[in-house]
C-alpha cells in the first residue's frame, strides 16, 4: 500500500533529522523557560519558604496550590500573561522553524546552518502563509465551537438522554480532526510549492488545497497514522514521566531530562510526517 510505503520511507528518512529536531527543541525550550522562570520567582518569593511547599515535590497538592492562587494572585496572573505572550511569540517563530525544516527536508540534509539560512531567507513568505492558515484554522474552530454548543444545547433539550448529543459531539470531533489533517497537509504542500517552485502565496495555497483534495484518502491515511503514532507515544512517555518518583534533586533532574526528550521526540515525529508528505510519491 502506498500509504504504508510512504509512511515507512518518511519515518526512515525523518529519523536522520535529529539535529534539526534538537535545534527546534532548543528554541521551544528557550521560549518556555521564561514561563519556568516566572513560576520560579512567583512561587519562590511567596511560598518558597513554606513547609507546605515541600508537598509539591510529591505531586499536586490542592491546599498549597489553591491557597497560593487565592492569596498570591498577582504572580499567578503574571505567569498566565507570560504563557499567553509565549504562545503568541511562537506564532512568529514557527514560520522560521517551518522554512528551515522543510528546506532541509527537500535538500535531504540534517544541517543546522542550512536550517538557519533558509529559515531567515524565507521567513516573511512563510509568515504570511502561516497567518493565512492560522486564520482559516481559527474560523473552523469558531464554527465547530458554535456547532458543538448548539448540538449540546438543543440535544440536551430535545432528547430524553444525553447519549445522542454525545454521539453528535463525537462525530463533530472526528470531522474536525479530518479538517485539521487536511489543513496541516495543505499547508505543508503549499510550503513546498513556495520553496521548490517559488510560487506566489495564493498560488501555493491553491495548489496545497488542490493536492489535499485530489489525494484525500492518501493524506487522511497518513495523517491518521501519524496522529496515532504521536498519541501512543505521548501517552506512553507521559506515563513514564508520571511514574518517576520525583522525591529529590536527582529524580527531578531525571524527570526534567525525560520531559525534554519527549519534546524532542515529538518534534522528530513531526519532521517524519513532514518528510512523508513533502517527499511524497505523487509528482
Amino acid at each position: 500500500m502506498k500509504i504504508f510505503k510512504s509512511t515507512y520511507t518518511g519515518i526512515k528518512l525523518g529519523a536522520s533529522f535529529w539535529k534539526i529536531s534538537s535545534i527546534i527543541t532548543l528554541l521551544q525550550v528557550l521560549l518556555t523557560s521564561l514561563v519556568g522562570a516566572a513560576v520560579w520567582s512567583w512561587m519562590g518569593d511567596t511560598i518558597g519558604h513554606s513547609v507546605g511547599f515541600n508537598d509539591l515535590i510529591k505531586g499536586y497538592n490542592h491546599d498549597v496550590i489553591q491557597d497560593l492562587i487565592n492569596h498570591q494572585s498577582a504572580g499567578y496572573n503574571v505567569v498566565l500573561k507570560i504563557s499567553l505572550w509565549i504562545l503568541f511569540l511562537y506564532i512568529l517563530v514557527s514560520p522560521f522553524i517551518s522554512a528551515g525544516t522543510i528546506s532541509c527536508i527537500i535538500e535531504g540534509k540534517d544541517d543546522i546552518k542550512l536550517f538557519l539560512a533558509k529559515g531567515s531567507s524565507y521567513y516573511f513568505k512563510f509568515l504570511s502563509l502561516s497567518l493565512l492558515f492560522l486564520i482559516i484554522h481559527l474560523v473552523f474552530i469558531a464554527l465547530f465551537g458554535v456547532l458543538g454548543s448548539m448540538i449540546l444545547q438543543s440535544g440536551l433539550e430535545s432528547y430524553a438522554t444525553e447519549v445522542p448529543a454525545l454521539r453528535m459531539i463525537f462525530g463533530l470531533i472526528i470531522i474536525y480532526a479530518i479538517i485539521v489533517i487536511m489543513l496541516v497537509s495543505s499547508s505543508l504542500i503549499a510550503k513546498r510549492e513556495l520553496l521548490v517552485n517559488g510560487s506566489g502565496l495564493f498560488r501555493a495555497v491553491g495548489s496545497g488545497f488542490k493536492f489535499a483534495i485530489q489525494h484525500f484518502f492518501y493524506i487522511l491515511g497518513i495523517g491518521i497514522i501519524f496522529l496515532l503514532i504521536s498519541s501512543i507515544f505521548a501517552y506512553g512517555l507521559n506515563a513514564v514521566v508520571n511514574s518517576v518518583v520525583e522525591n529529590g534533586f536527582v529524580m527531578v533532574m531525571v524527570a526534567l531530562i525525560l520531559q525534554i526528550l519527549i519534546i524532542w521526540v515529538r518534534n522528530l515525529i513531526r519532521i517524519m510526517y513532514q518528510v512523508t508528505l513533502v517527499l511524497n510519491p505523487f509528482k
Binding site: V29, V35, G36, N54, A255, Q259
Partner: peptide, 19 residues
C-alpha cells in the same frame, strides 16, 4: 528542588501546548 520541579513542569506543559 521543589521549585525546580514545579518550574520545569510549567515549562513542559507550555511547550506541549505550543506543539
Amino acid at each position: 528542588t521543589a521549585l525546580l520541579k514545579v518550574s520545569s513542569k510549567a515549562m513542559y506543559w507550555v511547550t506541549q501546548a505550543l506543539q
